[in-house]
Every structure is written in structure tokens, then in C-alpha cells.
Design a protein around this nucleic acid. Sequence first.
RNA 1: GCCCGAGUGGCGGAAUGGUAUACGCAGCGGACUUAAAAUCCGUGGCCGCAAGGCGUGUGGGUUCGACUCCCACCUCGGGCACCA
Length: 915
Amino acid sequence: MPEKYPFQEVEAKWQKIWEEQGTYRASDPGESKAEKYYGLVEFPYPSGEGLHVGHPRSYTALDIMTRKKRMEGDNVLYPMGWDAFGLPAENFAIKNKKHPAEFTAKNVANYQRQTRMLGFGFDWSREINTTNPAYYKWTQWMFSRFFNSYFDDKQQKARPIEELEIPADVQVAGEVAVREYRDARRLAYKTKITINWCPRDKIGLANEEAVGGVCDRCHGPVEKREKEQWMLRITKYADRLIDELAQVNFLDKIKTQQINWIGRSEGASVKFQVASSKSQDAAEIEVFTTRPDTLFGATYMVLSPEHELVKNLESRISNLEEVKNYQEAAAKKSDLERQENKEKTGVELKGIAAINPTTGKEIPIWIADYVLADYGTGAIMAVPAHDERDFEFAKKFGLPIVKVVQPPALDSCAGISISTKGQLDDLRLESECWSGQGIAINSGFIDGLETAKAKEKMIAWLEGQGIGERKVNYKFRDWVFSRQRYWGEPIPLVYCSKCGWVALPDSELPLELPDVANYEPTDTGDSPLASIPEWVNTKCPHCGGAARRETDTMPGWAGSSWYFMRYCDPHNDKEFAAAEKLKYWMPVDLYNGGMEHTTLHLLYSRFWYKVLFDLGFVPAECGSEPYRARVSHAMILAYAYEDKNGHLIPSDTVEERDGKFVVTETGEEATQVIAKMSKSLKNVVNPDDVVADYGADVMRMYEMFIGPYDMDAPWSTQGIIGVRRFLDKVWGIGQNGARSPKSDMKASGMTGSGLRAPSYERLLNYTIKKVGEDIDGMHFNTAVSQLMILTNELSNFAASSHVPTSQEDYEAYLKILAPFAPHLAEELWHRLGHEDSIHRSPWPKYDESKIVADTVAVAVQVNGKVRGQIEVAIDAGEQTVLDAAKNEPNVKKYLEGQNVKKAIYVKGKIVSFVV
RNA sequence: GCCCGAGUGGCGGAAUGGUAUACGCAGCGGACUUAAAAUCCGUGGCCGCAAGGCGUGUGGGUUCGACUCCCACCUCGGGCACCA
């Protein structure tokens, strides 16, 4: 009976030795002359549930890639750490009145155990934890740099706030004016914004905790509330975050998603005068439009309900009560309601009107909640003929719809308008003539190749008139950086009534989280830190007077925005990382993470890095992008079952009978579907169980074999068996110690049926090539298939108690297997007498000439259908092959009496006859 | 609605213009066994006795030849969503 791979002993043994010998330790610059390679996986949040089987999929993938790089001679950095500030620990603290550090430590220990048991080549000497004060000291230090800098629009970069030029008039206005001028430009600034507020939990929620307008914790509806928050001015980096993507190798879908999220749109701002008989209360409404060329067709304007103009012109609005009612109703509407009901509503501001600058005509002003307060200027010009939303609104409220049928001839005349009442009006604009081509009318909306030209003309006209200018707008907002929470990095600022906001001196960092008695947020929604007077009350580092500490903490995204730099120099207590180490290791060569982080963590950390880069804390040699390449793993799903009504039911209520799935109790038919793993469906696979049953090597290899790396795949408890059989086979081959030298192989009669020595040699060389290329291209599933094919060929001889390969070839086989099954390969390697690790041995080379066979099977087609196959020499001439093809018996039958019109030979592949 | 991805045996999947279904799971037949498990050998798209025909979501097209390229559509998954 073949011996099975005794994974329990083998895996434990090597994990211990690797750790003791520092097999995977990265050398510091100077220690190694090798090229560096920095592979990075997103460090996990250590949850109470422990590792999900999804985590090891990406850890294994990059483990394989970095192991290969190491064997190719690179100095590899492949680190791991813990992103450990977060909500679950805080909720645990509230519930158990215990310090969240306790819960966190327990989870970290569990994650350490779980990641170690899988045998990854992490350099554990560089392990980091974001909740460690020695780590978050630098997170706070960086926040201070943000606070003490501004963005120079001309240079498009961050600079120290002391370098900000103060205009003379501000200077004259005094110290407070100067301070306000600076504060309004800092990269970290505090402002009143609308936040998601859960009235039941009395807590402010981050957007990601209030998805769909529902509180993540109590599932109740979320309200809007105004609150002062610290913000990071990420929008200043919008253009660079888009443009500098050109320097990096991210998956296209990641780039696209980031670009769409930033949502850059180019257009113009236009000022509309509010019609007034009395010149003293002249007012104007500024709008942003991407289609200034349709200005002729602007037949009304819409303000968001919150727009300040309503308040400013209150006295002139004749239906003020109606307007106020609408404003109130709109304020109460949650995002959820807004999303569910997109029916247009609105109220006209009676008594006032605006003037369309192209026509001089008065147009009505409305307020409506389909106009968003926080995009553009919170007001729009409505062009119902060229915008679906405006069209819908105009239809509902009977507003005129004017189609700009022709490109605006900016000189003598212009388009023709058709109002809803069917009347014709002339639109006139006194300016230069636009003489472009006609514009196609597409389902009622103006559009066409010449739109871009028309826009340019219109912008020029607006600028000439002084009523508008070119303008770029972005969808994304500044980063809300405050959390009214306990379990996060304290924001290292104090407020002094005399000096305003002041950063703590660096010497006072880290500002450690104090212990509190109660982790509940306070009634006002402030962080629990606000309830510790002795912590809150402090001295102003500037003037020495009484001051109060900021009680907000940083979001979970703070520590993860720069951790990849800390790995370069994790124990440095003088700097977040030494410049020469950053110069050597940065940028990260390959960064793997989930798609869900594309618009959050990935964008935040690029921004964070750019600020440090601009300020000179990241050496210029590193470049302005932290990650050279970014790839994304997919999810590991599970099988689930639906009952006959299409409802998902727990897996343990279903069984398989005669190839069909039935509900055990009722015998009713159930359908197998693929779903996310969930406790309620009882289909969660626990890595601990998998490792206990099959071992780490099998688990790793199965996760690679399960399917293409970038595609979701369901975990199959059946499928993993195939991988175990495969590794048992590898082990079995390893036990047949005697190996033949090459000369012996040829003499030993192993040239009979099936495998001849030369063909094994060809297969081995091909496999080395294929596996290497597949690893580089992240096609791990096909690499595993190829290793199985080679193993099957080897094992065909296992019965002869004689492995049909030379020592050298056998070692090459173990080496290409080593990144996938590191424990098994290491054990067999050492059984050959090696003292050093296989994982530090050189990656095998293949001989291209040995991959090419002498003869090749060529298919023969007649009229596109395969009718036969011939064996020809690889370098046979075309005529020789065609003749051989014609004489193939079955082909001959089809060619009999036919006239061959065309004959094609594709070298080594196919012959095609057309008759 | 917009953007992205995917549809191939009973199942996970392979093949990016050249013999569709590699590799693995399940199935079937056999060997070993008192028996079972494990292991090994064989078999393996559908129709057909066969010759042969039909087959990669659907319908068209390009080509000697299409899972692969082009056009139109359907279904499923993900992201964004009144962004002017």
C-alpha cells in the first residue's frame, strides 16, 4: 500500500526550522547585492471569526510568486501584519466593559497561528500591528504633517504651511485673519458637514457603515446630522490621482473604477442673473454644466433644497411657506428613500426669475431634490431637451422644452426652439458665428461629433462676456477623517482659544489612547475620550494656556494608508522608515487586494503617499506612486441550496439522493446554487479544519487549482480530494529512492511503450517552462494541472520501484513544485541529502531545444472538417506534408474524384484542403 | 440607466484563429479484498448498429478553418447610480 504524505509531522517540522533559520528573512539594503522584489498582500483585520478560506488564496498566490523570485536570486520582501483598529473590537468593549486591546490581542494571536500553519514565506521579523503605539506614533506624526501643509495649486503639490504666501490684505487684517486663511488651506481641516447619524445608537456612522441608509449595527434608518469633522483635502489630488495612473501597472478595471469614482467632468461655470427691478438686491446663481453649448435651451433653473439663495431672497419669494415645507420634507428624506423613489418633485420659487444670458429671457427658478447640494454649485441650468432628468421634470411641471436643433450660430441667428405648446421662438445670440457641421439629433437629444467644438466656442463666448469660465468638477469628496470612536488613533491636536488648532510637538508622540471606564459614545455623539476630563484638559503647546484635546480618533483607513512603508524598516524609532531603506524597497512591485478596496484604501493610500512624497519624506527616487502593479483576487464562494420556492436553505437540511438534491425532511427537490459562505447557510469552510484533514500543502494547492485566480469559485469538499491524491502520489514517488543516472535510463529498457526517456525529458523541460510562465502570469490553476501531468508520467513508473529520472531532473521537478507545496518539497529535498533549503536553491532552467519534438501529429481537414491525422517530421517541407496528407486513407476517400481548389499547411498544426 | 466581468460535459474548469472538453471531481466497468475503505487499470459530450451527423448562451457575419475576431441580442454576477 502506498504511503501517504504524512503532513502533520512534515509541515510542523519545517515551519519550525524555517522560522529558526530565518529562511524567508529579507536582507536590508547593503547586506545583499541582489535585486529587490517587494510582494505585498493586504494585511487583514483580525476579526473574531478567524481567517476565512478566502484569505489564503491571495496569500498563497503571492507566496508562490515571491518564492519563485527568491529562487531566482532576488532579495524578496513578503511581509505580514495586522490592521487592528476597528469596530468589532469596540463593540466587544462596549458589551463586555473590557479594553478592546484584549479582544484584539486574542484575535491577532489566532490569526498568527492560522497564517503560520499555512506555511507562507512571510518575513515574521517585520510583523506590524497598527494598534501598537510604536506604530501609530507615526500615523499621528503623518497626520501632523497633513495638518501643517497646504496644496500649492500652481505647483500641484503639497508644501509646508509656513511657505504659504499670505496676501497683503489678510496680513493687514490681523493674526486671526491670517490663522483663518491658513486653516482654510491646510490638508487636514475641520469643517461642519452632514454625517450619517443613527438616532437609536446615538452615533455617527461612516458611509460604509450606513450603506443604503441603514445603520450597520441596529439596522434602523439613518438620519443626516451636521457635525464638525476633520477632513483630508484629497480632492486637491484628483488630477494627479488620475494622471499618475499612467505610471503604474494596475488591472484596467481597477484604473477605470478609480477614474470613475473620482468622476472628473469638464465643462463651464455660468452665472445667471436673478431678474430684479431693484438693482440693489441683484443676485446671481452660478451653475456648473458639462454642456455649455446647450445654454440656448436652458428654460428654467433648479436649486437644491439647501441652496443658500432661498434664504437670501426670502423676502422676494411669494410662496415662502410652500417652499419651506418642501425644504423640510427634503431634509428628512434619507438616502434610502431617495434611492427608492426617483419620482421628480419640486416647488417653483414664485416672485423671482433668472435670465438666460444667451436669450435675455426670464426663466423660472425651482427647488428640487434631484439637484444635489454637494455637487457643483448645488444649482443647475435645466435644459430639458438635452438632459433626461430635466426633460422628465419639465414634462411633469409643464415647463418649456427648447431643442437646440442646430449648432448655435453665434453670430446672426441661431437655433429654432419648439416649446411644449408647439410655438416657435427665435433664439438669438449676438456674437461671433459658429460655422461647424450639423449636429445629429439623436432621440430628441442633441449630440454629435461637433459637440466638443461647440463647447469650446461657447466657453470662449462666456469668458468674453465675463459671465462664465472653463471649469472642472469632481464627483468624489474630501476624506472624512474623524470618528467619534474610542478604538482608533487619537488625533494629535489641541484646541486653544487663543491659538486655535495646534499640533502636538513630535516629542509628545505617540499620544496614547487612555483607558476609559465606559466605551459607549456620549449622548452628544462624541467619542468616549470626551468623558475623561483629565485627558481632555491640557496645555496649549504654543502659548502654554489652557487647551482641550481633540477627542475624535482616526478612521480604520489611517493605519493602512502607509503600512507598506513601515515594513521596509519596522523597528525604527527615529523615523517612520529610513530614507535609504525606502529608496531600496519602494515602490511595492506587486500589490494584491480585494476589489472592494479600489475606491477606498487603494485611493487613500496613493493620496497619503503622494503627500509624504511632495513634502520630501518619501525620497524622490521612490517615485510618486507607491505600487508598481496592483492585482485583485476573487472570492471563494460555497455551494448553497434553494428550496422549490427559490429560498436559500441551510446546507445541512439537504442531502443528495441519486444525483439529485432533496430536502431531507420533506423529500422535496432542492437546487444547488453558488452563494457566499455564511453562518446561516451552514456552508462556511474553516481553514483550521481543512489543514487538520488535509494539511497546508493540499489546502494551498487546492486553492490555486480551484479556478482562474481572478474569478470567483465555489469551494468543493469533493474537489480537494484530487489534490490530496496528487500530493500523495508525489510523496510516493519520493519514497522510491533509487534514481537512475541518465545513461542508465537509456539502457534500462524504459524505452518501450508509453514513455521513452526522451519524451520524459521533453515533458520536464516543457513543464519547467510552463509552470514558470504560469506563475508569472498568475495562471496558477494551469500550472498545477501541468505539475499533475508530469507527476502522472513519473508515477507510471512507480511500480517499477525505480524513478525513471536522473537526480538532476528529479531535483528540478521538486523545485518547480516547491512554491506550491513548500513543506513536501523541502522534506523530499532533504531526503536527497541536501543541507540547505530548497526555497533558497536556484530555480531550474529549461532547454528550449529539448521541448521541440522530432515529429508532430498534424490534423488534416477537408472542407473544414477533420478527416484524418498524420505524423510528420517537425521540419518537413510543405509539399511533403501535403502529399502525406493526401495519402492518408480516410482523407483519400474524401478527396477521391474531387478537384482540390486550395491546400493550406500551417506548420506543425494542420493541413486544410478545400474541394 | 451607465460601466466592468462571465456564459464550454453531471460539476470545477482547459484551449485567445488550427484536432473543443487538457487537468481534477463525480459516474460506469474491472483488479486487489471475506467485505468495505484506500489504491491501481480501463472508460468517459450528445444522437446513431455503423458510416456519419450534431455540439462552446441565441441569431447573423468574416475566414480554408471561429469557444476565440466583428455586429445584434439573451441570461447571470459585480460596481456606480438624479454627479447636471
